[in-house]
Design a protein around this nucleic acid. Structure first.
Length: 1066
RNA sequence: GCCGGAGUGGCGGAAUUGGCAGACGCGACGGAUUCAAAAUCCGUUGCCCGCAAGGGCGUGUGGGUUCAAGUCCCACCUCCGGCACCA
């Protein structure tokens, strides 16, 4: 195609013989698309200038514009290629970016590749092809696929995590994390040097498990000092139980293990086993990660998922002294109000105190069920621990209903009740949460209840729902049940009814009891059913004053049914819940807990916490489910750590000047996979001779060091790639501060800044988005970025679903080959069943964007994907529907271009007032829709507008040009081609978007509905802006309406101006 | 089990603040064009009764609020997603 600017490009006529030569056909679409993609690339129309550095050219021209940073979630360049589900979000961000560009923003939109990862490595293991080769090929083919869609990315900014100049800075960020610690007092990360200074100056005492004797800094030797400092770092080495997957030869993060306890990749069994690993201290940020969710504009469900993942719990830490002076067990509980109900304690099998508290021999009279048949507590503990460690998570999950555990032979003292509590170990208590120890309150916790039942442990009630609390009080405060004139049962019911009305407070109970005791003759005599005096709550949601839930009325019936003595006995012994056969975990009223008796649960919690605090036995506390982030992988194809170990085996960070640490060349990439869960990990980098062992001068002369042989997990690169887009070629910094501040923060305050729009799937709701926020906050604390949060606005696009077919065995078959006959589906003659599922390889139902582009053109594909429905919704791919969007483009094309000559057919006549009004209403609607990412309705509005135009013989220029400009973000190639043919100047993608004239938005006449008693009976027109009275008159004047209301009395006329009139008549 | 999201014609969906349910597209039906077909264009199309005029019913189910409910409230059903011994 010739490219003289301004000329009408005589593209190849459509090949269809006999058809109009310049009809918008698939072949024509493909030709102009290729041509425009080449012209855009040549002219660099999507280049966004930076304020500083290599990409600063042209910045002055846009310096006065606001910035807009639009971002897609970083894709993995899979060898399988894209299916039509992948570009859904990319098309959406492209449209928004184009729209923003046309409405006066300096827009940054780029695309890069999260290219480290298992598939390339596994392919390398099988074929010996270097993962870099596979990865680069995949990136190239993905770039080609994306380019074909006409996405307007600034291709100068494309990065891949596997590029050495990129991962150099990933390593650099790791060093920032390694060289930082979390200052709780200031609630931020600080450089580790400042901690060392504080130690040296004596401003801070070196405390913690690495300095058990609490010696002063000056007295500590070099090794001890380093160990203490290392234990403060945000990146630290820790021996901790990890998810070891022998089949993959690597450990996995919790997030990479499925609920079934298998690897997310490959579905291999995963075992728990202790290993020394790099761990990032994300828990230090738990509170801020939670709190700052309030700063961002994200879908509420995603925020909720993060909140749940962080899992903040408020409660108390309580200390229980172990008998015999063996120390204290600290527990965390969210229900300190139940401390009087603790009847035993449980430690996680791995709990460090287990060793020291377990005695040689069983105490006298130990129940057989507690010992697991072992001769001594030590033996029992040892065997149980071995058994628990051998259990895979699969079994552990499966076993949740059967509680197991053994007695340690030791006892602790309940700091509230003084009761003697046997101490058990059991795997239902997890070392990783809270303190790894619990006080067991079987009456009010289901797990404790199950365990107590299994091992015949006692329960003790300390909370009742209000009606039962009243009944309990009545039973335990009545001496002579026969003294009630109408019987104790009626008195009890009467008491409960009144007590519940009065509220929860036991203080009122004595006077109620006296009142009930005096009652001789209730109205209507003694009822047959004593419970009839209690008013039930039919709604049964929550518990309100004065009403009793049916559940508890039934329970009261049972209590009455068992007779006074038996019932009283249950409550005197505090075993009502054991009798009822379930734990009561709801809030209620405290009982059998002297300092808090009668208090409702929330007050009881606060009261008992300060009571415990006064006695030095506990204090309020907060814990999180979130665990520190396991950051080592035994892989080849990942970022090497910039860490070496010295002769003492302690980690030493390499100086910045030694970055990047490049991956060594290898022949064999396989980690040593094994079926043996106990086999030691052998990372592939260990085989890199001359690399794993190095001589370096790190300041005190050349010495031998061993390199860290693990690599970083795939999440590392995706934690900061959005910052590298901002300054992709910078080799002095990961990003120039001026560029970072311009694109990330702009004119916003630090708390409101961040990427303007981030689009991706919900599957990253917790993992990627939490990790990236964590890194960003560290960089913020260290002064490297200017915003508190990385992503201001998040949008989750839905999935594209497609029919998938299974044969009789339940195996998926190639959807392309399935045939439909008489409403049934067949694959190679065999009947198959249809279902809808996420498009992809596993369901064998992929459709590639390339096949659709060939058949209809990229613009049609773009429109169809956006037209399918709301972006955030999952929706089925229906190939039959695509042609609708193709026809729409054909119709618009015909409006603008003569199909015979290829010439623009706009006329210079002015548009009629009516048409102009319609145009401006369309512009206003389309703008609103694009702004809100409602592309489906934006397209419908443009289509509707063009349909209205069709009948008119000629199209005025002002209308036709606006139509092209509105179409440009959605279908840029055809818009560009039409623009040139109608004689437009320059690239349409750089033109301003049409602006609606507010004066033209109101229609002169409005059709309104006339309802009689809420049913539409007619329509009348009213002039724009008519008042209520005019509406009313117009409605009543309509002959059809007049006929219908004839002989009826008009009660009321409701007028919604411009919408409807409703006549209420009888 | 707990927490989220969603149910509207034959299909995808629209109705943004309680105000004309079904925009727009597909499909289907009828017509134009064509030797014919494809492609394209025009028209009809929620369901039921009726020749028609017209009437009735309709947004998962059952109740409620309102002049008016897809939209608000209560109870329930179904599907999808997340979490799951977290003390």
């Amino acid at each position: 195609m010739p490219t003289q600017p301004g000329s009408t490009s005589p593209a190849q006529p459509a090949r269809d013989a006999g058809a109009a030569p310049f009809r918008y056909t698939a072949g024509f679409a493909n030709e102009i698309e290729r041509a425009w993609q080449a012209r855009w690339a040549e002219a660099g129309v999507y280049h966004a200038p930076n304020p500083a550095g290599d990409l600063a050219e042209g910045f002055e021209a846009v310096a006065d514009r606001p910035k807009c940073y639009v971002l897609d979630m970083f894709p993995y360049p899979s060898g399988r290629g894209l299916h039509v589900g992948h570009p859904l979000g990319y098309i959406a961000t492209d449209i928004l970016a184009r729209y923003k560009r046309m409405t006066g923003f300096n827009v940054l939109h780029a695309m890069g590749y999260d290219a480290f990862g298992l598939p390339a490595e596994q392919y390398a293991v099988q074929t010996g092809t270097h993962p870099r080769v596979t990865t680069e090929q995949n990136i190239e083919s993905m770039r080609a696929q994306l380019r074909r869609l006409g996405l307007g990315h600034d291709e100068r900014r494309s990065v891949a995590t596997t590029d050495v100049p990129f991962y150099r800075w990933t390593q650099w960020i790791f060093l920032q994390i390694f060289n930082a610690w979390y200052d709780e007092a200031e609630d931020r990360a600080r450089p580790i040097a400042e901690l060392i200074e504080a130690f040296e100056a004596g401003a801070r005492a070196p405390a913690g498990p690495h300095n058990p004797e609490g010696r002063a800094w000056a007295e500590l030797d070099e090794g001890a000092r380093r160990r203490i400092v290392d234990s403060h770092r945000l990146a630290y080495l820790d021996e901790q139980p990890v998810n070891w997957c022998p089949a993959l030869g690597t450990v996995l993060a919790n997030e990479e293990v499925t609920a079934e306890g298998r690897s997310e990749r490959g579905d291999h069994p995963v075992y728990r086993r202790p290993m020394k690993q790099w761990v990032l201290r994300i828990t230090a940020y738990a509170e801020r990660l939670l709190r700052d969710l309030d700063l961002v504009d994200w879908p509420e469900p995603v925020k909720l998922m993060q909140r749940n993942w962080i899992g903040r719990s408020e409660g108390a830490r309580v200390r229980f002294e172990v008998e015999g002076g063996a120390g204290a067990i600290e527990v965390f509980t969210t229900r300190p109000d139940t401390v009087f109900g603790a009847t035993y304690m449980v430690l996680a099998p791995e709990h460090p105190l287990v060793e020291s508290i377990t005695p040689q021999a069983w105490p006298e009279g130990t129940d057989d069920r507690w010992t697991a048949g072992a001769k001594s507590p030590r033996r029992a503990v040892e065997e149980y621990r071995a058994q628990a460690a051998a259990k895979s998570d699969v079994q552990r999950q499966a076993d949740t209903k059967e509680k197991t555990g053994v007695f340690t032979g030791a006892f602790a003292v309940n700091p509230a009740s003084g009761a003697r509590l046997p101490i058990f170990i059991a795997d239902y208590v997890l070392m990783g949460y809270g303190t790894g120890a619990i006080m067991a309150v079987p009456a009010h916790d289901e797990r404790d209840f199950d365990f107590a039942r299994e091992l015949a442990l006692p329960t003790r009630d300390v909370v009742y729902p209000a009606p039962i609390a009243a009944a309990a009080w009545f039973l335990t405060h009545t001496e002579d049940p026969d003294a009630f004139p109408l019987g104790w049962d009626l008195a009890l019911a009467d008491f409960v009814a009144l007590a519940t009305l009065e509220g929860y407070f036991a203080a009122a109970y004595p006077s109620i009891l006296r009142k009930v005791a005096r009652r001789r003759d209730p109205a209507g005599g003694r009822p047959a059913d004593p419970l009839s005096v209690i008013s039930p709550n039919p709604g049964a949601v929550g518990e309100r004053r004065g009403v009793v839930q049916r559940e508890w009325i039934e329970a009261l019936g049972e209590i009455i049914g068992m007779g006074f003595t038996a019932a009283r006995d249950l409550f005197t012994r505090a075993v009502y819940w054991a009798h009822a056969g379930e734990a009561y975990t709801q809030p209620g009223v405290a009982a059998n807990s002297p300092p808090i008796d009668g208090l409702p649960t929330d007050e009881a919690k606060a009261a008992i916490t300060s009571w415990l605090e006064d006695r030095g036995a506990g204090e309020s506390a907060v814990t999180y489910k979130l665990r520190d982030w396991l950051f080592s992988r035994q892989r080849y194809w990942g970022e090497p750590f910039p860490i070496v170990y010295d002769e003492a085996g302690l980690p030493v960070a390499l100086p910045e000047s030694m970055l990047p640490v490049e991956l060594p060349e290898l022949e064999d990439f396989a980690p040593s996979a094994s079926d043996d869960p106990d086999a030691p990990p052998r990372p592939p980098l260990g085989r890199a001779e001359g690399w794993a062992e190095v001589t370096l001068d790190l300041g005190d002369g050349p010495k031998r060091y061993t390199r860290e042989l693990n690599t970083m997990p795939q999440w590392a690169g995706s934690c900061w790639y959005y910052l590298r887009y901002l300054d992709p070629t910078n080799d002095r910094a990961f990003c120039d501060p001026a560029n970072e501040r311009y694109w990330m923060r702009g004119d916003a305050p630090a708390r409101r800044g961040g990427v303007d729009l981030y689009v991706g799937g919900v599957e990253h709701a917790v993992l990627h988005l939490l990790y990236a926020r964590f890194w960003h906050k560290i960089l913020y604390d260290l002064g490297r970025v200017s915003t508190v949060e990385p992503f201001q606005r998040l949008f989750n696009q839905g999935y594209i679903l497609a029919p998938a077919y299974r044969d009789a065995r339940g195996v998926y078959v190639e959807a392309h080959e399935v045939e439909k006959r008489d409403g049934a589906f067949f694959f190679r003659g065999e009947p198959v069943t249809r279902e809808f599922g996420k498009m992809g390889k596993s369901l064998k139902n992929s459709v590639t964007p390339d096949e659709i582009c060939t058949e209809f053109g990229a613009d049609t594909l773009r429109l169809y994907e956006m037209y399918m429905g709301p972006l955030e919704q999952s929706k089925p791919w229906n190939p039959r529907d695509i042609v609708g969007m193709h026809r729409m483009l054909q119709r618009i094309w015909r409006t603008l271009v003569d199909e015979q000559s290829g010439e623009g057919r706009l006329t210079d006549e002015p548009a009629s007032r009516e048409l102009r009004g319609r145009l401006h209403r369309t512009i206003a609607g389309v703008r609103e829709d694009l702004e809100a990412l409602r592309f489906n309705t934006a397209i419908a509005k443009i289509n509707e507008f063009n349909n209205a135009l069709d009948s008119s013989a000629s199209c005025p220029r002002e209308v036709g040009e606006a139509l092209i400009l509105m179409l440009a973000p959605l279908a840029p190639h055809v818009a560009e081609e039409a623009w040139r043919r109608v004689g437009g100047e320059g690239f349409v993608v750089r033109r301003p978007f049409p602006v609606a004239d507010p004066d033209l938005l109101v229609e002169e006449e409005v059709q309104i509905a006339v309802q009689i008693n809420g049913k539409v009976r007619g329509r009348v027109s009213t002039p724009a802006g008519a008042d209520e009275e005019a509406h009313r008159a117009a409605a009543l004047a309509d002959p059809a309406i007049a006929r219908l209301i004839e002989g009826k009395a008009i009660r009321k006329v409701i007028v919604a101006p411009g919408r409807l009139v409703n006549i209420v008549a009888t």
